[in-house]
Design a protein around this nucleic acid. Structure first.
Length: 391
RNA sequence: GGGCAGGUGGUAGAGCGGUCAAUUACACCUCGCUGUAGACGAGGCGCCUUACGGCUACGGGGGUUCGAAUCCCUCCCUGCCCA
């Protein structure tokens, strides 16, 4: 049921335009896949996604396992039935949460490891929303078997290893699923990242084995992508790409890229089979996307367009636009001139500015619509360029 | 006319002799978000200064004190109650 067809390979770069076929329809690549962590692209309805032209979304194993529970989702028709979305769905394996609930917090760093996004974790005085549950306990403990988690919802203990992740993802029923991996922190040293990568390789084989062994029909329809790790080290990336690349995966994910993603791709993509799709996990800044497509990436997922939209920043060709800024209070222009999105066709900056100031939920909704439209049309433009031989 | 209670930074509201340019919240301003613990988070928010520091401020005026947003007197104003 799953297949990848390359329509055109660029002669100017390693870019390619293709079509991913899944049991729930096709994805024209290169494509941006919006993130729908909790079985919803935050603030956006299915109709709005369809109007924008979104062909697939990416949900999350960890979050849905905790709530409402993967078995509940299965009972209600899998993710497609549950969220009434009959187009392709990806699920991340929960591997990213090993990082975002683990090293990201321990190292007190933001997800790209830069000093400006340092998060202050207030653990003792119940000052933050999450503090009262966790106190000083760690959220994550990693062993060879898998990962012991503490739920961010109620503090309860859980375990997810490769086999569990596969089972949960089978229940969720996405079209494209990922191996259980550990996404390492940029703050980790070489030795740790090497050790972690090797463990991720063993987990990849276990994921593959569990996936192949499953007798469920839903599982048979799922394409399991292997994930390459290796941090910010050229040799580790090469080792990881070679190892994962030779396993019998129908596609691949490149994870753990922080900072300068192009570099990681240069170290990785040459070792992956050309004919299989490559998904760049978590990457979605516009310059990164252009550079990545040229290096042979087919799909991306990233929270940036939706999170920025929700937080009042609109994507434009001229860069980020802070819709909340006082300068837009009387600005009658749309977010972006000549933008065909619903938001720009109907509303001005002054209105969006007001919605955000007034804390009205329509502000995040409209800005998210615009940002997703911006991304979708960016990708369509890129695809056109590849097909026309311009990129 | 009498009796109470009050007048603090854009707003609400702490403080009740020094550690007060003044807790906190909201508002306001700026910025940040890369496989979503995120409709979140950070910083700023009297005036001058890059900073050190200086200046003016807790209704007005006067006083006590080494020192007052804090105590006293007086005036003005607000609210409630009684005439």
């Amino acid at each position: 049921m799953f297949s990848f067809e390359i329509e055109k390979k660029s002669k100017k770069s390693r870019a390619r335009a293709g079509i991913i076929h899944t049991p729930h329809g096709v994805i024209h690549t290169p494509a941006f896949i919006p993130v729908a962590t909790q079985a919803t692209v935050k603030g956006i309805t299915r109709r709005q996604l369809e109007e924008i032209g979104i062909e697939a979304v990416l949900s999350n194993t960890y979050h849905l396992y905790l709530r409402p529970g993967d078995k509940v989702v299965k009972k209600l028709g899998g993710l497609h039935g549950f969220m009434n979305w009959n187009k392709p769905v990806f699920t991340d394996s929960g591997g990213f949460q090993v990082f975002s609930l683990g090293a990201s917090i321990e190292h007190k760093i933001g997800k790209v490891g830069n000093a400006t996004s340092v998060k202050k974790i207030k653990k003792d005085e119940g000052e933050s929303e999450h503090a009262n549950v966790y106190k000083s306990d760690k959220f994550v403990k990693i062993t060879e078997e898998g990962v012991h988690f503490r739920s961010h919802l109620d503090g309860s203990s859980h375990f997810i290893g490769p086999e569990e992740s596969m089972k949960i993802q089978e229940n969720l029923g996405a079209d494209i699923i990922f191996t259980f991996d550990e996404c390492t922190s940029p703050m980790h040293d070489y030795q740790y990242i090497k050790k972690s990568m090797e463990r991720t390789h063993r987990w990849a084989k276990r994921s593959l084995k569990a996936h192949s062994a499953s007798s469920g029909q839903a599982h048979k329809d799922q394409a399991l992508f292997g994930i390459v790790q290796g941090g910010d080290f050229k040799d580790l990336r090469a080792i990881s790409a070679k190892f994962i690349g030779k396993q019998d995966f129908p596609g691949f994910g490149i994870g753990g890229s922080f900072g300068k993603p192009e570099k990681v791709l240069d170290w990785t993509l040459p070792f992956l089979p050309v004919g299989k799709p490559r998904h760049f996990l978590g990457i979605g800044l516009v310059p990164d996307i252009l550079a990545s497509v040229k290096r042979g990436i087919d799909t991306f997922d990233c929270v940036v367009p939706t999170r920025l939209g929700r937080n009042g920043t609109a994507l434009t060709k001229a860069g980020n636009l802070n819709v909340r800024a006082a300068q837009f209070k009387l600005d009658k222009n749309p977010i972006e001139k000549n933008c065909g999105c619903y938001t720009c066709q109907n509303f001005s900056r002054y209105y969006l500015c007001h919605l955000f100031k007034a804390n009205e939920m329509l502000g995040p909704i409209l800005t998210t619509i615009h940002n997703l439209y911006f991304m979708e049309h960016l990708m369509r433009g890129i695809r056109e360029d590849i097909l026309k031989g311009k990129l």
